[in-house]
Write a protein that binds this DNA or RNA. Structure first.
Lengths: 239, 239, 239, 239
DNA sequence: AATGAATGAGTATTCATTCAT
DNA sequence: AATGAATGAATACTCATTCAT
């Protein structure tokens, strides 16, 4: 019964969308299941037909975000890192990335910038869940599904699909912890923070959404470049 | 009766301290007044003797943080900006800061870096309240207490004590909105985020507290310098 | 699903009935929601499913009483006042009621007495809510729900359905404030007081319910007659 | 230490006065000890220095009212009933009062009217406590100190000082229950109700305090006369 | 798939009262 | 006589979750 299924999906999707909005506005704890039901236009009990608990709604939201980010990152790794290795333009030894020539570097840098742009736009599009991520991740004890799950994408084991993907192309691939920490700190965190606070800033400044986005993107890319250049992440061809 | 007073302060202070810890760990909504009472070793009703409501505890914490940050910033404005103006080493015209000579610049930059260090150490010391700030500020409807109050320290009117202080020394002082936004975005926000997530990072990495702090400070100051230099905030002697 | 509906009504009705009893026995403030739940044999939370608050239960009780009293009074106005006007047996000019003949007067007086009887019996049947009315009306700040709403039934504007009904039949109809005050004072108030204290008196005297009722009715009707006769309310045929 | 005592009395009196006001406005249950303390300008604990409990404040208020009413009634019994018996102008046999002549009756009636006037004025002066009396008396279970204590003044035993006083003058004195009931119903109750609702009525009508009072007094005395004449309470000289 | 009714375990807040000084 | 601090026992109200249909 595809029609039936569609309807279901629609209802379940409505519940998820409404939950996302409310969680991001008031926080998980302050959001009432009644409110979700009311805003989704469904009976409260129906929510428990689709989800085991209120917490499962949160998990669903967060998990699907992870999958998307993972997919985007994986796509980048595939298309630009793995491909370059296969093409003999890049060689990774421990912590040092050696490119075949300056064109390869330039090309790679362009792709990295594009990757940031895609990541930023994704974060902005899902800024509500980003908000949720930010403040739910700050709570100890209960939710282990917070922001720090993203750190898994930086793990050095084969459970991390990005790591696995690159490693399959270049078995030497690995890196230092500090690097990871920094990539996260000055990589993901500002990006996610920016997305999370985006609407607040929009309300504070006279800038348009686009201007705000570009302003951030420029500074973000500059900062990233600053940190990347001359360091252990990107290494100019070792001649 | 100073002894009496001290005792009182001790009890109220204990409630505040415990609340700060619990709010920062579990979030405001998930923290139970019972827990606060139990952890502070006082009767639950006593909490309501000192505070009108649970929310007022939060406000108290946040307000006192604001006051401290304001005081630190004001101290910097007084000692280093106003003083330089009075000494004829700095002249502010609209959005351009003109220094008398390179020594003045160097001196000012050194003080700015020191200011950042003080600010960072303060943020780290109060990282629990910073956590609270970060996630409570993400909730709509409570914005009034949230992170965005700090934006007031960047306002261009005389309600902002920092602006007022500098303006009294140099009536030409003003600046563009975008600059303000950026100072906040790449100024306060990473600092506060870093402090808020500090303990999480510590648990994730092998770095010591000190190393982590210095790592951040370097990158922070670099980023700030990057944004400051060659821009409209700091201008080399116009001679 | 009428059966379903009935069941619901039954539960909500049980809560109302129990509340009425407890409010009338112990007063609104001294009645605990827990007690209501326990006596009604329902879960405490269910009370809040049907009523927004404890106070709303009180309002519900009082409002439905008003409606009933209004309906009874309106019925009297329709059947006996309006009808007599239409039949040319009664003419109202300002404050003077002129009847066509002695039979008309006698008939009217008989109906008035019957009206009092119906009113008294209603008050006795609902004496619990009357108790509530009497003491809740004595509390400032809650006057809006209190006894004084009944005064509206004596208002001289078209928001008062009784006034409106008679006025539609006889546009000259109006009366003096003092009369209204007195009708209330020596009309509603003793009636309501009697009903409110009925059970207390019953416990104090050897009289049966019926004897007590008749005793009051006689004296009440005498008093009313005393006030009515020779005054501006009832006027013998002006011929 | 008379001065000390005076001060105390003043403070205690202030607590009583404030309590009376608050109890009469919001009811006993809804009045908070904190409010009493605040309005009386004293520390909450001091209230417990003067009174064992909140309830004792109520008792104090009510008891002193009883004493006053008893004193007024006793004074009337002494001056007018007992005196007439002693003067041979009145003879009471069971339920029948026989006066020596019409002058005696007229004189007695005049004194009764005066008694009502005094009683009414007392009730009006203490209308706040009357309010309290009215609604506290409606609550079963807890307060046995309500309005019905006044019924004691109508008891047929020597614990009732009025009965005792008259009986000492005329050993035949006694009466039927119904009479008592009626004296209370159409005697005390309207009087107390009138006093309790006085301020509400004042706010509702254009009449002055004096006019309102006289209006009630007239109707009250008329009603009383109506009930008294030709009945078993007052009997014209048996010739 | 959908709903109205029902519930257990909480949850912030209140309040009369007491204690120490 | 007077007070600031402290407390135990409520107390109205909430909320995620389940049940019956």
């Amino acid at each position: 019964m595809p029609f039936q299924k569609e309807e279901t999906e629609e209802t379940k999707g409505r519940i998820l969308k409404v939950s996302e909005l409310l969680f991001s506005e008031k926080g998980f704890d302050a959001t009432r299941v009644d409110q979700i039901a009311q805003n989704a236009g469904v009976n409260k009990a129906l929510i428990y037909y689709y989800f085991r608990s209120k917490e499962e709604i949160l998990n669903d939201l967060v998990q699907s975000l992870y999958k998307d980010i993972e997919a985007i990152s994986l796509d980048f790794a595939h298309k630009h890192v793995v491909q370059m290795i296969k093409d003999g333009l890049l060689d990774i030894k421990e912590d040092r990335w050696s490119f075949a020539n300056n064109d390869a570097i330039r090309s790679f840098m362009r792709n990295v910038q594009k990757f940031y742009r895609i990541l930023l736009d994704f974060a902005l599009e899902h800024r509500r869940t980003m908000r949720i991520l930010v403040f739910e991740s700050l709570k100890n004890g209960r939710h282990h599904n917070g922001l720090f799950h993203l750190l898994n994408l930086l793990n050095k084991d084969d459970k991390n699909p990005i790591f696995k993907t690159i490693r399959e192309a270049d078995p030497d691939y690995t890196y230092h912890d500090n690097t990871v920490l920094f990539k996260f700190f000055f990589g993901f965190l500002p990006l996610i923070s920016f997305a999370a606070y985006f609407d607040d800033y929009k309300a504070t400044t006279a800038l348009s959404e686009k201007e705000l986005r570009n302003l951030f993107l420029n500074s973000y890319q500059s900062t990233m470049s600053y940190w990347v250049s001359g360091r252990d992440i990107l290494i100019w061809p070792s001649v």
